[in-house]
Design a protein around this nucleic acid. Structure first.
Lengths: 354, 354
DNA sequence: TTGTAGGCGTTATCAG
DNA sequence: CTGATAACGCCTACAA
């Protein structure tokens, strides 16, 4: 197909000449103006805002454009307007399936709105998150921050430049979409109480996680309401591995039920407990959070408080789109979406009970 | 904060004036040139290719840039150069966890190379895939196609404009990275044979999937080699649901072992079989493909032929980066990565055996 | 080493 | 309704 690599003539450091200036070969509005016998500016009008040009010239131009296989140059367009048709999304950890649904939701409604999604991750680091955000902000029309780790002020700062939507966290002055944990947690705790549990342990997530704090608050107050003891233990990391590591401490707590910051922790915990010969849910009930992909693959399948992650992503993208289209409430009110308990097999009545 | 929406003066269709021309407020090389007392072109040089400017002015300029909080305008830069620092990735289905490792791999090495990743999905449709690809091609420096559904010619066409890397499919003349299924499948089939199985059934994936065909080829020839019967059945869709639906036909086939196009099918199949009271692996062995996230959540955990998906994504991105940097073989040779059998609990010796 | 000037492809503003 | 013409912000010969 192609010539074998033959050093010499070709400068080895130069970028592949094959793709050198692909702009050269592309038709511009000048080309089509010439072909249609009109002025470039007329072409621009005809192609960007149809209706501001006579039907006749319109057709003339469109035909010429089709003939020349014309495509707008997004950069050239973005330069004067400052608007690309692009939304950015930054997630804390691409590894974490929690974000899968968020990504999917955002991507879907973005492309539905004729926008493209740009993705970046922050590797759970506030610093790289800020860097990524800044970098994206230059290229996108709006930015979605999923479970951001940076400070409120930094987020507000970003939001000053371009529309920003935050998921899984509430930041004053910035549009947010957050799952309202109380309903789901309430259901979970009541269900636990009804099954004869008296003490629950909450396995917390990363300290900087706003959501982890919210969930602990929810657990604590729901337990208070239902007259259950609630204790909190920390996890090393919000992963399956972290869940495994927490097993010992969970056992030591003397609790018969556990709610964990997320499903990954719950799954890891369950694996470790079962490996130690402990029956779930007969001896201990486990409830996760989020209902991620795979939560129902386990045996028993995981009971979990479902966050509508896909909806969160979708809503955040929609918020941005609305703002961009000028139809959006001026006040940055945060949107709450419901959580609900999904009862599966990992929670239930105590057999060896207290 | 802001005034309540008051119709009248403000044109309701206009984009939020708040972000109207954010360019106006941003520092340009002209601003920093003025601040540093040099010419804009010097600033450009200092900021893009360090070393072509005296150390003194360099520092002067950098300080001024920092002071003014300067950031390049990517569009303005892209216009003359034609190069953005962006890679595109198109996946068939964001819903499918198979792609998440690919995404992760690509994203990681892209940002490691100081590129940003743009994501789009094709919803398993060749037509929208082509549209998305075309749209992306205009904005990115290189494009990764993961399990593309469009035709070879269409792909080659795209590759003519910009560097393209294909994952999970081999297209002549285009750089590809494909898992070499034979090693993994060989291991799987030999293991099955050693465990006393005589007939295996392959649950196929989507007809247009190049990979599904490769895998069936591999299964067939490995079975021939090991003197096993191999039959193939189709699936409605390559998902958990599709796996459930295939259960009846699997049973009808009389095979005691199944290899499925992917893990999702395998998991769905296992769930359905178990729900019908069939023991896995005592009565039937199940082997999946890919080793996706969650494959080890099941009971028994899924035996599967692992494709190094993350590596595929990473390698594809690296190929593009190499090409972009001019260091790349002119010939589009395809890169093969190894597959391997991961033995877990869902496969084993027949108990009620033949 | 640094300054000058022209251009990248579009959009936007003004006249006509 | 359409045609000039000036930005948009940066890059890059070319000249000094």
């Amino acid at each position: 197909m192609t010539e074998p690599a033959k050093p010499g003539a070709a400068a080895p450091t130069a970028p592949l000449k094959k793709y050198a200036r692909q702009g050269k070969s592309n038709a511009t509005i000048y080309d089509i103006a010439r072909a249609a016998g009109v002025n470039p500016s007329t072409v621009s009008r005809a192609l960007s805002k149809p209706g501001r040009v006579s039907a006749k010239t319109q057709k003339l131009i469109e035909d010429a454009a089709a003939e020349l296989n014309y495509h707008v140059n997004p950069f050239a367009r973005a330069l004067p307007t400052g608007r690309t048709s692009t939304l950015g999304l930054i997630v804390a950890d691409i590894t974490n399936p929690t974000f899968f649904d968020i990504i999917r939701g955002a991507e879907t409604t973005a492309t539905a709105g004729d926008y493209t999604l740009m993705l970046a991750e922050s590797a759970e680091s506030a610093a790289t998150e800020l860097t990524a955000a800044r970098r994206m902000l230059a290229t996108v029309d709006g930015l979605i921050l999923a479970s951001p780790r940076m400070s409120d002020d930094e987020i507000r700062d970003l939001a000053r430049d371009k529309p920003v939507a935050v998921i899984n966290r509430e930041v004053r002055g910035v549009r947010c979409v957050v799952p309202d944990v109380n309903k789901g947690i309430g259901e979970a705790v009541r269900s636990l109480a009804a099954n004869g549990h008296h003490k629950v342990v909450y396995i917390a997530g990363p300290l900087p996680s706003w959501m982890s704090a919210r969930r602990w608050d929810g657990v604590r107050s729901a337990c208070e309401w239902s007259h259950l003891d609630a204790v909190r233990i920390e996890s090393s990391k919000p992963t399956v591995e972290g869940g495994r590591e927490a097993a010992r401490e969970v056992l030591a707590s003397g609790a018969t039920a556990v709610l964990s910051y997320n499903d990954l922790l719950a799954i890891g915990l369950m694996q470790e407990l079962q490996a130690a010969g402990i029956e779930v849910p007969d001896q201990i009930s486990i409830v996760g959070f989020d209902d991620i992909f795979g939560a129902d693959f386990t045996t028993p399948p995981l009971t979990t408080v479902r966050s509508p992650l896909g909806e969160c992503g979708s809503r955040a993208a929609a918020m941005l789109l609305d703002t961009l289209h000028g139809s959006a409430p001026e006040v940055a009110e945060t949107l709450r979406v419901e959580t609900e308990l999904v009862v599966r097999g990992s929670s239930g009545r105590l057999i060896n009970g207290t």
